[in-house]
Design a protein around this nucleic acid. Structure first.
Lengths: 339, 339
DNA sequence: TATTGGCACTCAGGTAGTTCGAGTGCCAAC
DNA sequence: GTTGGCACTCGAACTACCTGAGTGCCAATA
């Protein structure tokens, strides 16, 4: 068990380090905080913290810097969540008004989050996997081409052009469309595949190839819910924090651009306190993100978490502010989707 | 008039500088190229080039670096366009196969271009302004909500959710839909507004509000063809070229994220040789892009240029390769859209 | 007149030595 | 358990110096 005062010292170190960006030493620590003890005592505390691998000295004789483990303890036990300022709250409300479709709402959300935190913000599109079919449309866009549109109850709209090998009959398209809707409306996407195995059999032999192609395309979209999508904003904020990334920021930029990595990461993160989940430094398995921390929270529609949003920044970030910003934005987005 | 040999020297300086990233001096110049004259003569030439502001010495006594004006002369008069290597051509063909809808094609294109050039690549979505209506769809997605989908002949699909103030009748929607299509199919977007002014009058008084809302939304989408869109890839390449941007790359990243700036820039650029247009360094009006050059080319559908694509990178870029890559990709994309 | 070798000069960048000070660990004393 | 004291460390910052690639200019040359 780590004694109370040691924890206080750790908290002070993390806070000072985040603020000054310099390794913090025992003397400056007692100057900036009222511990009521001398620097020598603090030095002893710090030696213990280093023993526990919560802090670390970059050079034999210079101040201490929190380790990933130290940050972790800080956010788990020590960091109060800062309430948002009034102006931040106002910014959030303002940003949300007047957007009606999902694309626009999410676009605004991600920009908002990036402005609020001065970090790279990300918003995941509602995952197809957990959603239900609201509507399926088939639109003929050329002789042999049909546009398939899948609308889910999370508001996500996914479209795909199907190339048919043969000219297609308008009435057939209409029939397929209405039968699909009858069969699938309100069905969870996860269950769609099972319901469609024998779908083509309801049609005359001559049409089954066409129907088959359409069903296949629909399944592609449903099944490949790996085609998850993330939108980003504020990438430039990374460059502004360059000194926080030893080496270069380009691996980080690459990882961010490589959505697969991000998706994997945020999908696997487990929710912690207040519905926010954190990955600090090397807690994530990606070498390129070894110096990055990620703060995410799920957002909901009709009571179900449908996707996540969050920020990504240097390990040395202001966790308190970022956690509260992410949490607040997630809540507002949930509220906005409720309408 | 600048004598022939001076131009040769300029070419050599640009080439060496691009390759070595070091200011190039008279001695190393005669070593690397066969001018048949001594370094002293080259020094005289270089003094003249400096007089003309085509090159510039960073410090009183170190090698020379091309100025924006020097690069400009280089690309206008001196740079042969490198033919693509066989493997590059293969890469292009491979990338293009098997994408059927516009989103996917453009997504592949932008990634391809960024890989080919190792720069930040951008592809502009086909501008709505010059396209024609192919199809308009109205889909009821909830009681008082209708999804409007506009498909243009350039393949661009634009969707928007319309919130109606009143529950809506399925048959009315169908009627509006078919009348809209009759009225607008094949019409250039620029002319749509004119044809819709009296559209609502064809409906009974009681429905005109609803019809009006839908028409308004349609006009919004058509009219606001400022909602042009650019997709990007390879942002991380910027970070890898950091030393090429004095100060920081973050203004550049910001400018890129701020699509408005990019759009303005590429829209105003005039086509030069081979259908490629260039903006070198401060030739563009944006301070944040003072050290960046942009290479763009238009791509076509059915003989009309519908949008642009290109790369953005440091002023010190390999113009020859980038120009040929941009040109080639634009051609392939044009070809791919032809199907 | 264009070219050349020679020469004095410049200056960024690297190396080496020095100092400075914030920081440490340890210990004896309170 | 806390404290003051003390010797020690070591990165950062400053200085001085040197080196070498590069320059401009000039008088001699072809």
């Amino acid at each position: 068990m780590i004694p109370e005062r040691s924890l206080e010292v750790l908290r002070a170190i993390v806070q000072d380090y985040i603020q000054t960006k310099e390794p913090v030493g025992s003397k400056s620590l007692v100057e900036r905080h009222q511990f009521g003890v001398s620097s020598a005592t603090i030095r002893n505390e710090m030696a213990m913290l280093e023993e526990e691998e919560l802090i670390h000295a970059p050079h034999t004789s210079s101040g201490r810097v929190p380790t990933d483990k130290g940050y972790r303890l800080f956010v788990d036990r020590l960091g109060e969540v800062k309430p948002l300022s009034a102006s931040e709250k106002a910014a959030i409300s303002n940003f949300m008004v007047g957007s009606v479709d999902l694309d626009e709402t999410l676009g605004r959300t991600v920009r908002l989050l990036s402005q609020l935190t001065n970090q790279v913000a990300m918003v995941q599109y509602p995952s197809l996997g957990r959603a239900k079919v609201r509507n399926i449309e088939l639109i003929q866009s050329a002789d042999t081409r049909v546009l398939l549109i899948l609308i889910t109850d999370s508001g996500r709209i996914q479209q795909h052009v199907i190339e048919l090998n043969d000219s297609v009959d308008v009435e057939l398209i209409g029939e397929i469309r209405s039968k699909l809707n009858v069969a699938l409306s309100g069905i969870a996407l996860a269950e769609v595949a099972g319901l469609l195995t024998v779908f083509a059999e309801g049609f005359p032999i001559g049409n089954r190839v066409q129907v088959g192609l359409i069903v296949e395309s629909l399944l592609d979209q449903v099944d490949a819910n790996r085609q998850e999508k993330i939108i980003l904003a504020g990438t430039a904020n990374l460059a502004r924090r360059e000194e926080d990334f030893p080496g270069s920021i380009s691996p980080v930029l690459e990882a961010i651009e490589e959505q697969v990595v991000l998706l994997k990461l945020i999908t696997e993160m487990q929710s912690e306190r207040h519905g926010v989940s954190l990955s600090i430094g090397r807690e994530n398995p990606f070498e390129s993100l070894a110096n990055a921390s990620v703060v995410v929270s799920g957002y909901e529609n009709q009571g179900n978490e449908i996707a996540k949003l969050g920020v990504i920044g240097p390990t040395r970030m202001d966790y308190s502010s970022n956690i509260s910003a992410v949490r607040a934005v997630a809540r507002y987005l949930t509220k906005a989707l409720g309408n």
